[in-house]
């Protein structure tokens, strides 16, 4: 069981991600944008952060950069949920310190397979 922070401004995506992960036995905390996520992250360490890229207030790339500034998130896997299959968005994510990405649309099985890559 891992502690996972799921960040997406879309409630349906958030619910889907969270439902899938909880179904696989993980403990999920939800946030609807980068600001909310960062606030949660400042309070507790997570084993994995899954974040959408395009969000109001603070987007996923900014969130990622901010999280890497926190001592307890220095090495935490951060995966971006992105629809962009083009390289430049992925590059921006990597530069900000993202571990990897999951390309939308994805289904629950793909999500679980991908997070297995980074969870112990």
């Amino acid at each position: 069981m891992a502690k996972i922070l799921a960040v997406d401004d879309s409630a349906s995506m958030r619910q889907m991600v969270s439902f899938t992960l909880k179904g696989a036995g993980h403990q999920v905390t939800e946030a609807s944008d980068g600001v909310e996520a960062l606030k949660i992250a400042q309070g507790q360490a997570m084993d994995l952060v899954l974040s959408d890229v395009n969000m109001p207030n603070m987007n996923g790339i900014e969130l990622c950069a901010n999280l890497r500034q926190l001592p307890s998130y220095k090495f935490t896997p951060i995966l971006m949920l992105t629809t962009e299959s083009t390289g430049d968005k992925k590059m921006a994510g990597k530069t900000a310190g993202a571990t990897g990405w999951i390309v939308k649309p994805f289904n629950p099985d793909q999500l679980l397979t991908t997070i297995k890559k980074v969870l112990g």
Binding site: M13, N54, T83
Partner: peptide, 23 residues
């Protein structure tokens, strides 16, 4: 940005939930 984000979320969601026409 707001307009883009809305379109983006709809695309992402519709793809995920299998509404490829919309996506």
């Amino acid at each position: 940005n707001t307009i883009f984000r809305s379109a983006h979320s709809i695309k992402g969601g519709s793809g995920t939930f299998g509404f490829m026409q919309v996506a």
